[in-house]
Design a binder for these strands. Structure first.
Length: 278
DNA sequence: GGGTACCTGAAA
DNA sequence: TTTCAGGTACCC
C-alpha cells in the first residue's frame, strides 16, 4: 500500500481523530513487535500525528512538568494499515472482520476509540523514541524540493535513475509505483545513470514529481487490493497511473503507439515506454 | 553495486 | 505450482 501519498492520506485522516485524545494503553499482539511494548502510556494525550518520509509519527505529550514527550514511529512497509475503530472494542469486528483482514498486530487503545495496526505480511515496524524523528532525505513535497536541490543530490550518481529515486536517504517518499510514473512523466529512460541527467531533464523530473505526488495525495493515494484509508476508504489515483502495471499495453501518450515494457531493476519491476523515455 | 531475507496471500 | 506484491535491511 504505502508510498508517500498513501502515508500522507493515512496521516490526514488520522490526525483530526486522534488529536487531543487520551491514551489508555498499547496492546502488542505480534511477538515481532514486542520491542514496541510500553507500560507508561496511560493518561498521555496525543499531541500530533505527522508524516516523516514514509513513516507515521505519533507524538505523545508529557503528563506533567519534567516528563518527556515520546514518539511512536510506525512504518507500514508493504501491507501495513492503520485503521480507526471508533467504538473499540465493540466495532473491532466491523473494522477488521468485514474485509477478512487478519487480527491486528497491535492496538492503540484511547479513551474512546482505538487505532488498529493490521499488517498481513508483518513487515511493518513500530518503534519508540524520545526524540522527534528526523527526515533522512529530502521530502519531494516540501518547499526545499527544487530543481537545484535535486540536481545537487543527483550529481555524480551512477545508479540507474529509477532505483535511485527510491533511495530514501536521498529523496524520502517515492516507492516503486511513483518512481516509474515520475520517470515516464519526465520522459527519461529509467536505466540512465542518475547523475547523467541534463539540467533540463532534472527540471522536468522535479516538476513531474511534485505534480504527480500532489495529484496522488488529492486522490487519497493508490489502492490495489481492498482499501487503505483509516476508515477503509479506497485511494482513487489508480486510474491515473500511466505505466505502472501496464506492461504490454500501448503507451498512453497520443500518437506514440509503443508498448509499455516491464523490466527488473534491483529486484523490482520498472515500467516504462521505450519510445517516449530517452 | 547485486542478491537474498523477511512474511503472507492473491493471482496466474 | 509458481510468481508476484506498494519496503527495507543485511550479506558479499
Amino acid at each position: 500500500m504505502p508510498e508517500l501519498p498513501e502515508v500522507e492520506t493515512v496521516v490526514r485522516q488520522l490526525a483530526p481523530r486522534l488529536a487531543g485524545r487520551r491514551v489508555a494503553r498499547l496492546v502488542v499482539r505480534d511477538p515481532k513487535l514486542a520491542g514496541a511494548r510500553r507500560r507508561d502510556l496511560a493518561g498521555r494525550r496525543i499531541a500530533g500525528v505527522a508524516r516523516v518520509g514514509k513513516r507515521i509519527v505519533l507524538e505523545f505529550a508529557s503528563r506533567r512538568r519534567g516528563e518527556s514527550p515520546c514518539y511512536l514511529e510506525v512504518h507500514l512497509r508493504m501491507t501495513g494499515r492503520l485503521l480507526w475503530a471508533e467504538g473499540w472494542p465493540v466495532t473491532a469486528g466491523a473494522a477488521t472482520g468485514r474485509r477478512r483482514l487478519p487480527p491486528p498486530r497491535a492496538v492503540l487503545v484511547l479513551d474512546r476509540g482505538a487505532v488498529l495496526f493490521v499488517d498481513p505480511r508483518r513487515f511493518g515496524t513500530m518503534r519508540w523514541s524520545r526524540e522527534r524523528p528526523r527526515p533522512g532525505g529530502l521530502d519531494p513535497t516540501g518547499p526545499g524540493f527544487t530543481t537545484e536541490a535535486l540536481a545537487r543530490l543527483l550529481a555524480g550518481a551512477g545508479t540507474p535513475l529509477k532505483p535511485w529515486l527510491m533511495r530514501q536517504d536521498r529523496l524520502e517518499g517515492l516507492g516503486n509505483i511513483y518512481a516509474s510514473e515520475v520517470t515516464y512523466a519526465a520522459a527519461i529512460d529509467p536505466r540512465r545513470p542518475a547523475g547523467s541527467l541534463t539540467r533540463e531533464e532534472v527540471r522536468r523530473l522535479a516538476a513531474a514529481t511534485r505534480r504527480i505526488l500532489r495529484a496522488a495525495i488529492r486522490h487519497c493515494g493508490t489502492t490495489f487490493s481492498d482499501f487503505q484509508g483509516v476508515l477503509g476508504t479506497v485511494g482513487g489515483y489508480r486510474r491515473y497511473l500511466r505505466v505502472y502495471g501496464r506492461a504490454g499495453e500501448p503507451c498512453p501518450r497520443a500518437g506514440c503507439g509503443a508498448r509499455i515494457e516491464r523490466i527488473v531493476q534491483q529486484g523490482r519491476s520498472t515500467y516504462f515506454c521505450p519510445r517516449c523515455q530517452r
